[in-house]
Design a protein around this nucleic acid. Structure first.
Lengths: 115, 115
DNA sequence: GGTCGTTATATCCAAGCGTATATTACGGGC
DNA sequence: GCCCGTAATATACGCTTGGATATAACGACC
């Protein structure tokens, strides 16, 4: 099996930048789980800077923020995925799954052309 | 209409590099039309270096070369898309079209979440 | 054998992306 | 009011990508 988790990567563009993609979806899920950008970055093995930039891009691309963050307070602050953000994530994943299902048999055949 | 030519980009990976994607497909079509890598590069507005690297990557990724090139000779040489390469291109485009059709209505709805 | 246009290759440079690091801002809790 | 951990921001560095340029190799044609 050449593509365990699906070999297609769905990227939804908004102008020049990627509004939603595999990395941003994972990050969103991590923030939902950890309640923190820095903890999510650590979990996903990326720098805090990168994680923050991804969040910033998402918030700029969508009509409403997908992540709401707070500085200070108990625990120093944190970040949470908004209800809107959860909808975005769910719909993105549904699309990704639909693409995978639609393409799977053809991709299997196409992969046989590879080395 | 936010995605005139389809907003999805299908990239087929082979290890670390992209065996086939939108750019390589366009390049393949250009080579088929012009019979030359340099002419195709000019037509697509990319450097010869880039075009050559894309061709090289494709030839390394697939079981058989998708482009056969010749140095010297009448016209200084040239490049042609092999029969195998035409099959690769046709199948890739079929997959891309299938993805677009499968995802179109959902993508339309998803795009409404964007700014 | 010289000419010609293309492939193939090497070198240099600029821009973008990502990491690492440091610093500041923030606000609840003690 | 101080402490703490996180968000937010800035800077420096390395890596990769792609363009511009130069050069060599090649082979049919005259």
């Amino acid at each position: 099996m050449r593509h365990p988790r699906g070999a297609t990567k769905l990227r939804v563009m908004y102008g020049a930048d990627i509004a939603m993609g595999p990395g941003k979806a994972e990050l969103l899920a991590a923030i939902e789980a950890t309640g923190s950008i820095s903890a999510s970055a650590k979990r996903l093995g990326m720098s805090y800077r990168r994680a923050w930039l991804l969040v910033d891009t998402m918030n700029r691309c969508f009509r409403e923020p997908v992540v709401a963050s707070a500085t200070g307070g108990s625990g120093g602050g944190g970040a949470r995925v908004t209800a809107f953000g959860r909808r975005v994530l769910a719909r993105y994943r549904a699309m990704q799954a639909r693409v995978d299902r639609a393409i799977d048999p053809q991709l299997e055949r196409f992969s046989q052309l590879l080395r």
